[in-house]
């Protein structure tokens, strides 16, 4: 989109850069300052997933990662077995 700069030579206002950087920063800060947050999320994920499949809890990883311009919740959950005949609850 460099050609856009030609039409509007003004860069993005630096306060918008500041706000965006802070937004990403604080997602990490708040999650790492409260490790119990990720720990409790992990517990809830296990409870939800084990309804449908057996998982290897010891090999499970739940982390926040930077991907491009956003922070994503990465959950790496090894599956041992998918349960048969589980109906999705409404």
């Amino acid at each position: 989109m460099d050609w856009l700069k030609f039409i509007n030579p003004r860069e993005e206002p630096s306060k918008d850069v500041a706000k965006e950087r802070l937004r990403l920063l604080l997602i990490h800060d708040r999650a790492s300052v409260a490790p119990q947050l990720l720990e409790s999320l992990r517990g809830d994920l296990i409870a939800a997933i084990t309804k449908y499949m057996d998982i290897d809890e010891s090999g499970m990883e739940v982390n926040l990662e930077n991907v491009g311009h956003s922070v994503v919740l990465m959950a790496n959950i090894p599956i041992r077995r998918v349960k048969r005949g589980v109906q999705a609850s409404l």
């Binding site: 206002p13 630096s14 306060k15 918008d16 500041a18 706000k19 802070l22 937004r23 604080l26």
Partner: peptide, 12 residues
């Protein structure tokens, strides 16, 4: 546009 304003800081 070179400094966050009151609303920006409060929103965060």
């Amino acid at each position: 546009g070179d400094m966050m304003d009151i609303d920006d800081v409060q929103e965060i």
